[in-house]
Amino acid sequence: MAINNKVAPKAGKEKRKGLNKLERNYMGWVFIAPWLIGFLIFKLYPFASSLVYSFTDFHLFKGMTKVGLFNYIKIFTDEDIMKALWVTIKYAFTTVPLKLVAALFIAYILNFKIKFVNAFRTAYYIPSILGGSVAIAVLWKALFRDNGLINTGLAMFGAEGINWLSEPKYALFIISLLRVWQFGSAMVIFLAALKGVPTDLYEAATIDGAGKWKQFFSITVPMITPVIFYNLITQLVQAFQEFNGPYIITQGGPLQSTTLISLLVYNKAFRSYEMGISSAMAWVMFLIVMVLTIISFVSQKYWVYYGDEDGKGGK
C-alpha cells in the first residue's frame, strides 16, 4: 500500500503534465478543426474555385475552357444582366433605408415606458423570426394579387385595386416591402443601443429646453451611429443576397422588373448549368458589395461617433 501510495501520485502528475501540454499546444486546433474543415470545404474552396471558373466558360455538361475576361465583358454588355444589376441596386437602396428608418422609429417608441411594451416588442420582432421563409413569401403573394386582401380592402373604401404584382413599377416595391416588414432584428439592436445612451444627456438637454425631436436628432442619433453603421452594413449585404422574395412572389417578372442578380446567378448556374458566367456574376455582385462596404467604412469618420477622441471605437 505504501509503495502504491508513492507511485500513484507520480503517475498522476505525469499524466496531468502531458494533458496540459496537449491542451496548450494542440487542443485548440483540435476543437476548431470541425469548423476549419467545414470552412475549407464549404466556404473557401467554392469561393476560390468560383473565381477560377469566372475566367472560363465552364458548363456542367460541356466542359471548360479558359475565356479570360470574356464573362466580365459579357456582364457589362448583356442587356439582361445589366438590367438585373440595376434592379438589384434599386432594390437594395430602397429596402435598406426604409428598413433602418422603420426599425429605428419603432425601437425609439418601444424605448419609452409604455403599457404592454414587452408584448409590442415581441409582436414587432416576430416577422424577423420568420426570416426568408417560403410560407411568408407565399402569403405576401396572396395578399398582393389582383383579388388579394389588399385590393379587397381598398375596394371596401371604394378605391380601385392596383396591379401590385403585374405592374413593373409596383412589383419591386412589393418585394422590398416584405423585407422592410421584417425589421425586427435591426430593431432589437437599435433598442439595445438606445438603452445605452446616458440619461444625463437627455436631462441636460431638457433643462436647456430641447424638445423630444431635438433630443432625438441631436443626442439619440449621434450616440447610436456605431449601431446604425453596423445595421447599415449587415442589411446592405443581406439586400444584395435577396433571393426568396422575388423567386417565389414574382419569379423575376413582370418584364424582369424583379429579376435580381441573385436570380440570374441561380438560373444560369442550376438551370442552364453555365457555371462560368454565373460565377462571374457572383463575383461582380461581391465586388459591388465590397466597394459599398469600403465606402461606408471610409465615410464613418464623418458621421459615426465612437465616444472617444481618436474616433477608432475602443482601439
Binding site: 398582393f144 394579387r145 389582383d146 383579388n147 396591379n163 404584382l165 414574382t250 417578372g253
Partner: peptide, 10 residues
C-alpha cells in the same frame, strides 16, 4: 393578357 395572368398571382 400576361399582365392579367401575372396579377392572378398563381
Amino acid at each position: 393578357t400576361l399582365k392579367k395572368l401575372a396579377g392572378d398571382g398563381a
